[in-house]
């Protein structure tokens, strides 16, 4: 934040009309009423951003009859951790019914495991394969490199949503419908974005470092794993986190591919949970508890790597 002082010359500004004046004061940066107003706007935005999360927690810690009798209560009506127990399968059917749950079996642990398997499979494979390709584009000399690279470029422009239907047909023909592998497969090998993102960083690594390793007798493959990858640890970590989040939160593709509990991931399970309950008797406490648990791993990941993720958002990789 620069400290350039702005002198109060609003009155001489030629084009000032009333709505603009309001703006002028809002973005004022000295400790003026304008700055106070700017912070006030920021706080309102933060409240809108964060309050729904409080509401998830408040709802998840209530009983359903309580929720319906006190819809406006700011604290959990009839505080209980029953909804979490219900979701995690630790509550008896009688207790569940008493708190407004459906009493039906919810295979939450299975969905959680499926989500972890899909996201891990996608992240590990996609990042490794994309890094290998990025290295071949950034550092190796081979015939047809520019042409193959142009193909990857073209791939970047295909909207994912267009490939979903044909990919579904393909996965069906491969007999992988309703399997974790079938969900992971299309994004397991690469995304054009990942290849570009990493290529950009590899190109920035000084040639000399690699050549020194080569002179010491390291092979190309050895150089890649022992020199290049460690040097690019930071962008690789960033990419891995972003890939994991994308895979974890994906809904449309797993919805197409998975039909039963054996491959159902959390996002799809939440949708089914919601769709199956009657409009009047939705188990909101349970649904919010499940949503919170589904989102929790992403919050933890974010808390651990917030700076990295926040700073990765920009145009460095793609501009």
């Amino acid at each position: 934040m620069s400290t350039t002082p702005v002198t109060p010359t609003d009155s001489v500004e030629p084009l000032t009309n009333p709505p603009e004046r309001a703006e002028v004061r809002r973005r004022r940066k000295l400790p003026t009423p304008g700055k106070v107003l700017a912070w006030a706007v920021m706080i309102v935005i933060l409240l809108i951003t964060m309050l729904p999360f409080y509401w998830i927690l408040r709802t998840a810690l209530s009983t359903n009859p309580g929720l319906l009798s006190e819809p406006g209560s700011l604290t959990p009506p009839e505080f209980t951790t029953g909804a979490f127990e219900r979701v995690l399968g630790m509550q008896s059917t009688d207790e569940a019914l008493a708190e407004g749950g459906s009493g039906a079996e919810l295979n939450f642990w299975r969905y959680l495991l499926n989500s972890v398997m899909v996201a891990t499979l996608v992240t590990v494979c996609q990042v490794l394969f994309s890094a290998m390709a990025a290295y071949a584009f950034a550092r190796l000399r081979w015939k047809g490199r520019d042409k193959v690279f142009a193909l990857f470029l073209a791939g970047l422009m295909v909207p994912t949503v267009f490939t979903l239907l044909p990919n579904f047909v393909l996965i069906k023909q491969l007999g992988l419908i309703d399997t974790v592998l079938g969900i992971a497969l299309p994004t397991m090998f690469m995304t054009p974005f990942a290849v570009f993102f990493l290529r950009q960083f590899f190109m920035g690594i000084p040639m000399e470092i690699e050549e020194a390793a080569r002179l010491d007798g390291a092979s190309r493959i050895g150089t890649f794993f022992k020199v290049i990858l460690p040097l690019a640890a930071s962008p690789i970590a960033t990419l891995s986190i972003l890939t994991y989040m994308t895979a974890w939160n994906d809904y449309f593709w797993p919805l197409m591919v998975s039909y039963t509990d054996s491959s159902r991931v959390l996002t799809v399970a939440l949708g089914v949970f919601r769709a199956q309950s009657p409009q009047s008797g939705t188990d909101w406490a349970g649904l919010m508890a499940a949503s919170l648990i589904a989102a929790l791993p992403m919050f933890l990941l974010f808390m651990a790597f917030a700076r990295r993720i926040v700073n990765s958002i920009g145009f460095s990789g793609i501009k």
Partner: peptide
């Protein structure tokens, strides 16, 4: 070496992106 490095990604691009297109 390059063919080896590029193979998995190229397979993914071809089979799950360009071919579906």
């Amino acid at each position: 070496v390059a063919l080896m490095f590029i193979a998995p990604a190229a397979l993914g691009l071809g089979v799950f992106l360009l071919w579906p297109l």
